[in-house]
Simulated assay, not measured.
Amino acid sequence: MKRIRTTLLSVFSLLLVNGCASQSQWLYPPMAIPLQVSAKKEVQIAQLTQLIQRKNLDDQVRAKMLYERGSFYDSVGLRLLARLDFDQSLALDPAQSDVYNLLGVNFTEEQQYDDAYEAFDSAIELNPDNLFAIRNRAIALYYGGRYELALEDLKKLTKDGEVDPFISLWRYIIEYEIDPTLAKKQLTEKYDARKPGWGWFLVGLMLDKVSNEEALKAIVTTSADNVVLAERLTETYFYIAKRYQLNGDLKSAYTLYKIVLSSNVYDYIEHKYAYIELDRIKKEAAQLQQQAASVEKVN
């Protein structure tokens, strides 16, 4: 096995890679310093809290401030406080598509899928062009096991021949549950016709066109600062973990999803949904153990 080190900072230990080109064995995966709440964000939350308490505020102004504070709460991982603010904001002004979208993501994180669908439906009804709500509803439908409906939503996001790498990734993940061979064929075609960009780099990882070693070495050596490093590693580890998971390597996937959470990049959907993936792996592993125990008992 060969140890790979980078020069970005001594705090970043790299991985060990065995002699086999198709698999990497992780010992010290590169990690960023976990992101902390900035003083600026804390001040903004405090200021909004003071303003919201004023009695002479117009309902729409108060609704806007609650939405903004809820967004800040969400960005630092305080989901319950965020949901309370979103609920209060909608009670004052129910015609807010963006608030319903964030509320839907919040419900998805909690695996309350029916509530999530209802929130996304409201967001899209208020603003049919809310592409984030359409994408997020597709992901919620995927996690809720409604793959065909999820694909219908993602197909709405591809217009005039444009191909978005992140939409392509999620379409692959969803379609893999229906027809793995077709899913890989379609994603490979999109990757082969790609334009340069970070998103397609992640697609290459998913397809094994880019190795884990190449990807992580490039990220650690080119990230301008710790924030960029944390954000890129959050995305990278999530999709590597998803690839392992789809290939049946639950142990490796489980480890990487935990690393995703360690970054504290709460704004990214990859961080938000890593919790769901961990729970799904736990349940799948428990089922496999039960099946193995049943087979052993019969024998």
Rank of each mutant, 00 (worst) to 15 (best):
M1C: 09
K2S: 13
R3S: 14
R3W: 13
L8D: 11
L9H: 12
L16G: 09
V17W: 00
N18K: 00
A21S: 15
S22Y: 13
Y28D: 15
P29A: 14
P30Q: 12
A32N: 11
V37I: 15
K41G: 03
K41I: 10
E42R: 12
V43Y: 05
Q44C: 02
Q44Y: 02
I45H: 01
L48D: 04
T49V: 03
L51P: 02
Q60Y: 09
A63P: 00
M65V: 02
S71H: 05
V76Y: 05
L78V: 05
L81A: 14
A82V: 02
L84T: 15
D85T: 05
D85W: 05
D87T: 15
Q88L: 00
S89N: 01
A91E: 11
A91C: 03
D93C: 06
A95Q: 08
Q96F: 01
S97G: 02
D98L: 13
V99N: 02
Y100D: 00
N101A: 08
N101L: 07
N101M: 09
V105D: 02
V105M: 03
E110V: 07
Q111Y: 05
Y113K: 01
Y113P: 00
D114T: 11
E118N: 08
A123S: 10
I124M: 03
L126S: 04
P128C: 08
P128T: 08
D129P: 00
N130S: 04
A133V: 06
I134S: 08
R135K: 15
N136V: 14
A140E: 06
A140M: 06
L141V: 15
A150V: 15
L151S: 12
E152C: 12
T158I: 13
G161D: 07
E162D: 10
P165M: 14
P165R: 15
L169T: 13
I174C: 03
I178P: 00
D179T: 00
D179S: 02
P180R: 04
P180C: 07
T181G: 02
K185P: 01
Q186K: 10
Q186D: 12
Q186Y: 06
L187K: 01
T188C: 04
E189P: 01
G199H: 07
W200Y: 12
F201Q: 11
F201L: 09
L202V: 13
L202Q: 10
L205H: 02
L205T: 13
M206E: 13
L207G: 11
K209E: 15
K209D: 13
A215S: 12
K217S: 15
T222G: 06
D225H: 08
N226V: 07
V228K: 15
A230C: 07
L233P: 03
T234L: 01
E235Y: 04
E235N: 07
Y237E: 03
F238V: 07
A241E: 08
N247P: 00
D249C: 02
L250Q: 10
S252N: 14
S252I: 08
Y254K: 13
Y254G: 10
V260H: 04
L261V: 06
S262D: 12
V265R: 06
H271Q: 05
Y273R: 03
I276V: 14
R280Q: 14
R280C: 03
A285K: 07
Q287N: 04
L288S: 07
Q289A: 14
Q290I: 09
Q290K: 15
A292N: 14
A293V: 01
E296P: 01
V298S: 09
N299F: 06
